[in-house]
């Protein structure tokens, strides 16, 4: 039994699905790390993802092209993040509350729209909804195991991995990243240095909306071509948590996303062995707590000082 588990856990198909399952988290967190780094306590990833799931399906349904679906998804993502920004940056309402309100309405609004537009509840499935087609690279065919893991994926998967490097460069090697980090560490100092704090917060917020919109599109249009009620089911929160644990460093966030993706792949693969899937599904969350605990061991000096 154990041998079987280990064989499946390190099999090629597990790794292949790891990369696919990590993608929605990657898009969201690569776009959102700037927003979190600039000091916005943004919890609204779940809402943005759910809205973009629905609207990408709608776009694909109307036009028959996944690219229009992607545009719809990004557009609605930007729109929701603008609502969040209007509430939090213009009207100065409490960010956590604005996000909770958005998250809680998202499920209801999408379900309502589903009933109005498609006339069904639960699942939207229609042959007019078209997904992205897998891309086949000829030159990868000779690479053996890499071919099996990386080849024949949706184009968005490759974009996601390029995005990690781009995000890292933008965060640590451009003036934009420097200013964002500066605002996050000390808002007043950045303002004194002549940085327009609100402008950078808005830019980062819109980036977050656009990229989380892509991750919503990825959930629906990467093969299954359907929309299910409350589709992200916590992936938005996972995105936010991986950003926070990775301390806004895109490479660290990438590792955390892979951890989440791997454990989700394990749930899929080990489910065939009739093992309790709930215990496997618990792995990433427990792993996060353990990682944080080990990280905290370094700082252990008796009782921690509480600061506000």
């Amino acid at each position: 039994m154990l041998k079987e588990i280990l064989r499946l856990a390190f099999s090629v198909s597990t790794f292949a699905s790891t990369f696919r399952l990590a993608c929605p988290l990657l898009f969201g967190s690569m776009g959102g790390c700037y927003n979190s780094a600039s000091g916005c306590a943004n919890l609204s990833y779940e809402a943005v993802m759910l809205y973009s799931c629905f609207f990408s399906v709608l776009g694909s349904y109307i036009s028959g092209s996944p690219w229009v679906g992607l545009l719809f998804g990004m557009g609605i993502g930007i729109f929701i993040s603008i609502i969040f920004g209007t509430m939090s940056l213009v009207f100065h309402s409490n960010m956590i509350i604005a996000a909770i309100a958005l998250n809680s309405t998202a499920w209801a609004v999408t379900t309502l729209l589903m009933v109005i537009i498609f006339g069904v509840r639960g699942t939207v499935y229609n042959e007019r909804i078209v997904s992205f087609k897998p891309v086949h690279f000829k030159w990868m065919e000779n690479l053996g195991i890499f071919n099996k893991i990386f080849n024949d994926n949706v184009i968005l998967v490759y974009i996601a991995f390029c995005l990690v490097i781009i995000a890292y460069i933008v965060m640590y090697h451009t003036p934009f990243g420097l200013r964002i980090r500066g605002i996050g560490q000390n808002e007043k100092a950045a303002q004194t240095a002549g940085v327009d704090v609100n402008k950078y917060r808005w830019i980062s917020l819109i980036l977050m909306g656009a990229f989380t919109g892509i991750s919503g599109t990825f959930l629906t249009l990467s093969g299954i071509s359907m929309f299910v009620e409350n589709m992200p089911a916590g992936k938005g929160f996972l995105t936010m948590i991986s950003i926070t644990i990775g301390r806004f460093n895109p490479l660290l966030i990438f590792l955390i996303c892979l951890l989440f993706g791997y454990s989700q792949a394990l749930v899929l693969v080990l489910g065939t062995l009739s093992l309790p899937t709930q215990i496997i599904a618990m792995i990433p969350y427990v792993a996060v707590i353990i990682v944080l605990f080990i990280d905290g061991l370094k700082k252990f000096k008796g009782v921690a000082d509480i600061e506000v």
């Binding site: 926070t244 996060v288 707590i289 990280d295 905290g296 008796g302 009782v303 921690a304 509480i306």
Partner: peptide, 16 residues
């Protein structure tokens, strides 16, 4: 975790 290891409670509570 919050008191002894300075782990921000909002992550751990959400994980829990």
């Amino acid at each position: 975790l919050r008191l002894f290891f300075k782990v921000d409670e909002f992550i751990t509570t959400m994980m829990m």
